[in-house]
Amino acid sequence: MKYMFLEFKFIKRDMNKILLLCVVFPLFGTMICLKGGMFHSNSLTESMEFLFGSVNLSSANWMYWLLLCFGYVILFQLIWKKREKNVEHNVLILLQDTSLYYINRLAIGLFFTLLYVSSAFFIAIVSCIIFLGMSFRIHLSILLMFVCIVVNFYLHAVLLMFLKFYTTNHFANVFILTLFFAGVKMQAPFMPLYYGMIDHFRGYHVLLFVLLIEVLLMLFLGYIIVKKFENKDYF
């Protein structure tokens, strides 16, 4: 917990921007969907499935996803921003453990992924209740969509860090944006990296299989990142 606190200290300067991002992109997207009359049903669960379950229902939905993904990539430019190298070196020497340092960085990424997706769900739910008069009822499928999106987003974030290590910042960002752009457009995803959206996996067994592969891939990439940073020279 103490080390997590250190991570928060590192990003404190950008905290306002981070929190703003967590609100602005989901809010703007939700407003577009509301204005586009995307929600036909009176059920909150069905409306949430329209919004988060697929991108093929309307152009407003597609816009929503693009905004959400774009916001997420910007979020990680702040959270995993390059740090002042001498401070980083001092922290590494004091911690005496590079693994711990990078596990913390990955953990803080997961925390903000949860925050970002929670914010998107919260804004969508509250908007449906306030503007469309729906009654609040949490269904299992909403929770499942939440888990799918968190896992899938975070897999992209870990891949972003991995690519930044092996290629350049610029390439990694463009690659992840392209993956998101292509991923949300796919009608029938054949790779786990492309969206664990619930509409694509109506059979829950398939969905759980996809989630498992995504989690394993995430752990594998995380392991490689931590090991690579352990053997890196810090100039």
Partner: peptide, 20 residues
């Protein structure tokens, strides 16, 4: 045995801090 020496402090090249 260890990744970094146990009881050390360093000042390398130029000082760096969290500027804010």
């Amino acid at each position: 045995d260890v990744s970094f020496p146990g009881d050390i402090s360093v000042l390398l090249e130029k000082p760096g801090f969290l500027e804010q």
